[in-house]
Design a protein around this nucleic acid. Structure first.
Lengths: 357, 357
DNA sequence: CTGAAAGCGCTTACAG
DNA sequence: CTGAAAGCGCTTACAG
């Protein structure tokens, strides 16, 4: 492969000048830059990332950590992040935790990330205090999306999960429901993952505001998946008199609930109303009422927060390394105020007044 | 950060020995290795990937290219690939084409991939002849999943799309349908992407085998998405007398079709039967009949094909660089015979005999 | 089994 | 605005 020396020779300049010219540094005359670019093009030169990273100390790479890339919310976030990163010349290293503690530890605890990436985006990743400390010690800029406690000094992007739970539940209350069940997050999850706790809190608040006492027998825990929703609903039905409405902590669980209800011979919404959170791609197809959250926007915003502070420019054909991203001041121990994006109640066919009405 | 010299000094050996010991090379005495490992642990040493890559010529990274990470099939494939790669100490660089020709070109045509990764997994990525040539010139091992023409010398993993189309359509024929519509791939896609062409071919073959002449007015093209399915079905219905059954080229389109039918006041399956391909996570929730294809298996198999030939060992705590992957003999111009994984008809509630019966 | 030394291909002060 | 030279932190023949 052609190296920087080849380009330098052809252009009649030093390798230092080639390096500067191709990276768009201002200290190169227009004429020289053109000559260098022409030479590079002619030789089909592409900078060696390894060499560039070693010499420059920047990796031009961002790590994105998600719990499960197969879930709608995470795939949508990753797509938006990927777009913005590549648009700006950064590579994306994907880490999918897949629910395994071992993987979580490997990603969060090792010094791997330190020398491998310039920045980190953590999506809905549960963190133990020790994890947060380790991440802070990496001294890398980072952003969390939809993460519970967050990392000290890292900006965070999220929605108001308490409000989401409240709005969903109030919608059911407003329709006249009083026996409102809730299916929610993983009981095995001993980590500080607050999403489902917050949504449940909103549920309970809305019930109490309506003068309804939360009934523990109507509150079932399961996984944040279609199957989880199915199982939780089956358990709910096994407990006795069914509720007239179910608030599921995410759309996938809501969809699972719809299946379980149908399998039990109950109709949605005539017998049981169902509402979720997300506005999943398929919510429309299923007629699922939901609290819509802007997933792509959260991803884009996180990527922007990371890249913009240092004045990242658009990727150039021969850009060797992108400027280091900033955005998180790791030395600042006060958690930055999270950016809260708005949610929106979307009423479809899965919610209706209870039959008694 | 601690460097290799620090470890060498503490262990009382040369940096060369540290390098060998931590990478598990056999030419190190057990006693020395233990000493080095202890020193590395004590200093919390982690190898610098950039330096290791530059010196060793291996990146320990695999590029995974998908059309849209938000689609069920691709997310599922990526999850399986990610797991196997990280399990073996490789990093995963994600490229999401997102349907933009510009992105496709950037990923496929530049020399970027060349110096950035050791191997490539291309998932359902349409290739022009020039693209395939460029990829071959990279002289990197690669595997394609579900890709049309493939890359000369690269192994490929896929299902038999013609058979999938045939089985789906025959299921409808067996139920007694004769007015069977098909909704399928992107009309704007001028590339050699064969998935939807093959599924359509299977559809037409099954019709002819049943003595039914394929009716062009029952064959609508759209995108491989929920929205695409909705639009295609709306167009189909606008053309006049509705079909009694629809074979959608993927489950997402099938789900979109179900929405469009419902919006038009038609019931599934009483008025119109619907069948797709995939066995999407939500197919069960929607009661969608489908041709199930093993997505995770295809991803895992592709990753294995890439990594196994060189006897990849499990990742070690301090493994600096993984062995170079092999599997594709880029100098071999005869396309390897594709590995074909089996599909399976899954009958749920969305298909039934036509009403006239 | 181990070490000294060269080299991987860039970027970055430093000097001009 | 440009160049000579050092240096980034490893790995790999080569020699022993």
């Amino acid at each position: 492969m052609t190296r920087i020396d080849d380009v330098a020779r052809l252009a009649g300049v030093s390798t230092a000048t080639v390096s500067r010219a191709l990276r768009g540094l201002p200290t190169v005359s227009a004429a020289t830059r053109r000559r260098v670019q022409a030479a590079a093009e002619q030789l089909q030169y592409a900078v060696s990332p390894s060499a560039s990273r070693l010499a420059g100390g920047k990796t031009g790479t961002v790590a994105v950590v998600v719990p499960r890339i197969t879930r709608w919310f995470f795939a949508t976030v990753v797509e938006a992040v990927e777009d913005h990163l590549h648009e700006n010349g950064y590579d994306l290293l994907l880490y999918n935790l897949g629910g395994r503690e071992q993987t979580r530890r490997r990603v969060l605890r090792t010094a791997n990330l330190h020398k491998r990436v310039d920045a980190i985006i953590l999506v809905a990743t549960p963190l133990r205090p020790a994890d947060a400390t380790a991440l802070t010690k990496l001294d890398l800029p980072g952003v969390t999306i939809s993460s519970g406690s967050g990392v000290p000094g890292w900006p965070s992007v999220r929605i108001d999960d308490v409000a989401a739970g409240r709005t969903a539940t109030r919608h059911l209350v407003d329709l006249g429901h009083t026996r409102i069940a809730h299916i929610s997050g993983d009981p095995d999850d001993e980590l500080a993952f607050t999403t489902h706790l917050d949504r449940r809190r909103g549920y309970q608040e809305a019930l109490r505001a309506a003068g309804i006492r939360p009934d523990p027998s109507l509150d079932v825990e399961s996984q944040f998946t279609v199957d989880g929703g199915t199982r939780a609903t089956a358990e709910l039905l096994a407990r006795g008199e069914p509720p007239t409405a179910i608030f599921a902590a995410c759309d996938e669980m809501a969809m699972g609930a719809m299946t379980a209800l149908r399998d039990a011979g109950l109709r949605v919404p005539q017998d049981v109303s169902v509402i979720g959170v997300d506005d999943h791609d398929l919510a429309g197809a299923l007629g699922l009422s939901t609290i819509a959250q802007p997933a792509a926007e959260q991803g884009l915003l996180a990527a922007r927060i990371l890249l913009d502070p240092l004045g990242v420019r658009a990727a150039e054909p021969y850009a060797g390394s992108a400027p280091a991203p900033g955005g998180g001041d790791a030395s600042d121990d006060t958690p930055a105020r999270p950016v809260i994006l708005p949610t929106r109640l979307v009423v479809r066919e899965s919610t209706a007044p209870p039959r008694a009405h």
